[in-house]
């Protein structure tokens, strides 16, 4: 897609809903650029570069007045929607916006409705959460606002969220996300938390990774490697003696 080429050329174009692991969806509109071609006789179009296929002879302008105006207005709208988001504030400040021109949305949270969470969950093969309702009332939620049956507590949604809206908590060997509790695997050697049991089971089943790999934490596994190699050395020394 066009955005990848623009970035490869070292041009900075902002984007919030874009991530390589998920299909582009063009919801944040920040990566909008102006395109034209010689044969278009001066006709121009504004497209989201994350979705526009690369074509021969495409002339792309990334920072025209019009494009900057669109980005500014969108960031201005975001400031009204997500007054508490540092990511948005920082980005808006780069475009010279310090305070929104609009009415701050009542009950505003920091969700910019970019669908990164639902899209990553889909890639994972779970689709445990989705966008529900329409338009301005739209929220990301599990089915029927209930505990999501398909969630495996992998935290991919929380990690990919550009504005860090999705909260989770790991406490006493239990992980809580989307109001669902997950048992965390604890290292059988040192007791450190690893990942949720359901996520591990999913990987074990889907990708045929041996279950015993998930029993110990990375530190203890490295120590085990050292021990095993060391014992070989020790034995070799004994033999040579």
């Amino acid at each position: 897609m066009l955005l990848a080429v623009i970035r490869r050329e070292g041009v900075d174009v902002p984007a919030l809903c874009e991530h390589e692991a998920i299909e582009p969806c063009g919801s944040c509109r920040l990566c909008m650029v102006e395109i034209t071609k010689k044969e278009w006789d001066g006709w121009k179009n504004h497209v989201t570069s994350c979705l526009y296929p690369v074509e021969d002879g495409l002339i792309v302008s990334t920072h025209t007045d019009q494009v900057m105006e669109i980005r500014k207005t969108i960031l201005d709208l975001y400031m009204a929607r997500c007054p508490g988001s540092e990511v948005i504030q920082k980005m808006a400040e780069e475009y010279g916006i310090y305070k929104t021109s609009y009415i701050t949305v009542p009950d505003a949270d920091n969700c910019i409705m970019c669908y990164a969470c639902t899209r990553i969950c889909e890639v994972l093969g779970k689709s445990a959460i989705a966008a529900v309702e329409r338009g301005h009332r739209k929220v990301i939620a599990p089915p029927f606002g209930d505990v999501p049956p398909d969630c495996i507590g992998c935290l991919s949604c929380a990690h990919i969220c550009p504005t860090d809206v999705i909260k989770w908590n790991d406490e006493d060997g239990t992980r809580t996300i989307w109001k669902k509790n997950f048992e965390l695997i604890t290292c059988k050697e040192c007791g450190k938390n690893i990942i949720s049991r359901e996520f591990a089971d999913y990987i074990i089943e889907k990708r045929e990774v041996p279950a015993e790999y998930f029993e110990t934490c990375d530190d203890c596994k490295r120590a085990e490697v050292a021990r095993k190699m060391g014992s070989l050395v020790t034995r070799a020394k004994e033999v040579s003696l």
């Binding site: 041996p210 530190d219 596994k221 490295r222």
Partner: peptide, 22 residues
Amino acid sequence: LNLERCVKCEACVAACPFGCAL
């Protein structure tokens, strides 16, 4: 590891039998 694609789900960290994904 392609960091652009990585979501930091830590699956590899948990799965590596030698504890070498960090």
